[in-house]
Design a binder for these strands. Structure first.
Lengths: 135, 135
DNA sequence: GTAACCCTTAAAGTTCACTTTAAGTCAAAT
DNA sequence: ATTTGACTTAAAGTGAACTTTAAGGGTTAC
């Protein structure tokens, strides 16, 4: 069992942020010692790691809370939780597409810088000519 | 030449947001008509599209402003601008890796839901047992 | 025993990127 | 002529996710 400081170090996440998640109802299973201090085990850390993964890919705090609330209601909500995960997976795919398109766009601009290729389509041109009147 | 409303429709971006970008110094080349109304041409729209692409992949407003400020100083800043684009490309790659890892994690959880495979490693287990004392 | 350091809570503050509001100008339509 | 609708600006408001502050309690080290 770990203190919040140890959990913070293992997760590389500020203790304040872990408390914030707890206050937001995202850590329903955390135990306390006799002094009321939070105690974390490996499963708690695994759940926080998964949450961090959700957060890093755009799931909101309230979205995570929704999963937690369903989970607290028991196995009867598994179908709904699966649907949420599938929807989130689809969101991840969308974000991958956005990144791929952006990567291509930036690559193309870099090619213009490196080869001065196709300059009339570049934003280079857009700025370089700004001293002349644009008509 | 387009009004802000036409630009807004072509870009699928609120006119207010375009004005906000202008106020933030992100649109240094926009012209005005005799009444002071903004006028956009295709190159302006292309620049805003590229900006939108930067924004969608995590570049901040001030990061974009930095590029604009360098561009306004002329061709002497091209090396620095190229460096910024290369750094942003590296950021995009990092984000792709985060998404890929998240996709794998979510897929694994979905497999647990679908096959009840490897349950002791799942967050399913973490929640389903929450009624029993965790020791 | 008292200082250092960990923990606690509640609440206020911060940052970012918009978004909305307020107050007003201008041109066309009725 | 006045209403409608698009535009203008400056400034205030919003929402999300922290982050910091304030005030205090418990355990360990000297």
């Amino acid at each position: 069992m770990f203190t919040i400081k140890e959990a913070s170090e293992k997760l590389n996440c500020p203790a304040h942020t872990i408390r914030f998640y707890d206050k937001e109802g995202l850590l329903p299973n955390i135990r306390r010692d006799d002094n009321g201090n939070r105690l974390f085990d490996e499963k708690d850390l695994d759940w926080i790691r998964l949450m961090t993964c959700f957060r890093a890919t755009g799931m909101s705090i309230s979205g995570i809370r929704e999963i937690v609330e369903l989970a607290k209601q028991g196995e009867g909500t598994i179908a709904r939780r699966r649907a949420i995960l599938e929807a989130h997976q689809a969101e991840i795919i969308k974000k991958q597409q956005v990144l791929n398109e952006a990567f291509e766009a930036v690559s193309q601009k870099l090619e213009v810088y490196n080869n001065n290729r196709n300059p009339e389509k570049s934003f280079l041109d857009y700025f370089e000519k700004s001293e002349e009147p644009k008509v």
